[in-house]
């Protein structure tokens, strides 16, 4: 087995694959899928919010990667990512506040128990 700590920076550069747009897109798609899966399967409010965060951040990775690799003259993609981070933060703030309220009212934050209204 090779001791990776004894390698020089040049060695790592020679061995590493070239990272391109495709890798970022794959990473984002993977994150998005994990988030979507979690959103559909998890039952607590907090994990659900975390899954939404994953999905939003997948979109952010996409935006920034496209902005870097595509022949775009401005920083519109990065700008959009900054805005979406702010929006996601406010969304989570409200989500946590609601989770507190639900917990005070019902003693649990399980989504399955939110079934008073039906029809």
């Amino acid at each position: 087995m090779m001791d990776i700590f004894s390698l020089s920076a040049v060695d790592i550069l020679n061995w590493s694959v070239h990272i391109g747009l495709t890798h970022f897109l794959l990473l984002a798609a993977l994150l998005f899928s994990i988030g979507l899966y979690g959103l559909l399967t998890r039952r607590g409010i907090i994990p659900t919010l975390m899954c939404v965060e994953l999905m939003l951040n997948a979109a952010n990775i996409n935006l920034v990667a496209f902005n870097h690799y595509r022949p775009v003259t401005d920083f519109s993609g990065q700008l959009m990512a900054v805005f979406s981070i702010a929006v996601a933060a406010s969304e989570v703030a409200i989500g946590i506040a609601l989770a507190f309220r639900i917990y005070r009212e019902r003693g649990s934050v399980n989504i399955d128990e939110l079934n008073h209204m039906k029809g």
């Binding site: 998005f32 988030g35 659900t48 939404v52 989504i111």
Partner: peptide
């Protein structure tokens, strides 16, 4: 909130594409 945030994420991903 949960449905709205999820749909926002889907739309943002679409916007990024």
């Amino acid at each position: 909130l949960i449905v709205g945030a999820g749909s926002t994420a889907v739309m943002l991903y679409g916007i990024s594409l």
